[in-house]
């Protein structure tokens, strides 16, 4: 296989040589002079190597920023409204059998140690807490701020939503945000790794583990345009959408 380049042709054309001038006119930029087989092989390998590279369109990360009081109130309000919808949907039997407004009045302000099985306290609640933590992380809160916001949200849930069926629990109040944040940091790191592998399987599992990265409020999705001239210089343009 023979490759050409515009500059190489220009070197070969002698003044007055019509045929070679014609070749020069018909050749497009980027095509070049006849080169040796060894050089052709190198070019072929470079092209093959380039074709094997997976170009990641987006780079997934977290960008921490400050928030106004209004933003904080909006986020807490949104989570609170969602929790009123999610609770009866995820535990319909409990909500139907044990839930009532008389229970709500009776449980209001109460705090107890629940007798739930470890499945709930050390599995379900930390997982819920981790997703809450990742929701706030997606909204641009730092890890500490996301944990503090999760604490507020889960406390509101415990004292004003879950009391429809049972009193607020000490374990849930502590373990949902705290163990949730510990788990959330692990999920955050793993999902960022998977999302940035650049392959479809990695992206799929990254989004499954960390669904907040799929929504419009996720602020860490950075458009990435890699540039490489095939020789020495390479660069990456980052485009961040607000």
């Amino acid at each position: 296989m023979v490759f050409f380049s515009e500059f190489a042709v220009a070197e070969k054309v002698a003044p007055g040589d019509k045929l070679k001038r014609k070749i020069k006119k018909t050749l497009k930029p980027g095509l070049a002079r006849p080169i040796s087989k060894k050089q052709a092989e190198i070019e072929r390998m470079k092209a093959e190597e380039k074709s094997r590279q997976r170009v990641s369109k987006y780079y997934y990360t977290y960008i921490d920023r400050d928030h106004t009081t209004e933003e904080n109130a909006k986020n807490i309000g949104a989570v609170y409204l969602i929790s009123w919808g999610i609770y009866p949907l995820t535990q319909p039997d409990t909500f139907r059998k044990e839930g009532s407004f008389s229970n709500y009045r009776e449980n209001f302000g109460k705090l107890t140690f629940d007798q739930d099985e470890p499945f709930w306290n050390w599995f379900v609640h930390p997982i819920s807490g981790s997703q809450l933590f990742l929701y706030y992380r997606a909204n641009g809160y730092s890890r500490s701020q996301a944990l503090a916001m999760s604490f507020i949200s889960s406390t509101l849930f415990e004292f004003t939503v879950e009391i429809y069926t049972e009193p607020a629990s000490v374990q849930d109040l502590y373990q949902t945000p705290i163990l949730g944040a510990v788990l959330g940091v692990g999920i955050e790191n793993l999902s960022m790794y998977l999302l940035n592998t650049g392959n479809a399987v990695g992206r799929f599992f990254g989004h499954v583990l960390n669904p907040s990265t799929l929504f419009w409020f996720y602020e860490g999705k950075v458009r990435m345009v890699p540039r490489w001239d095939g020789k020495k210089s390479a660069s990456v343009n980052y485009i961040l959408e607000f």
Binding site: D93, D114, Q115, D116, E117, F119
Partner: peptide
């Protein structure tokens, strides 16, 4: 001290 029936993990029966 409480005695709890843990037969059904989804339902706590004190």
């Amino acid at each position: 001290v409480s005695v709890v029936d843990a037969g059904d993990f989804s339902d706590t029966n004190i």
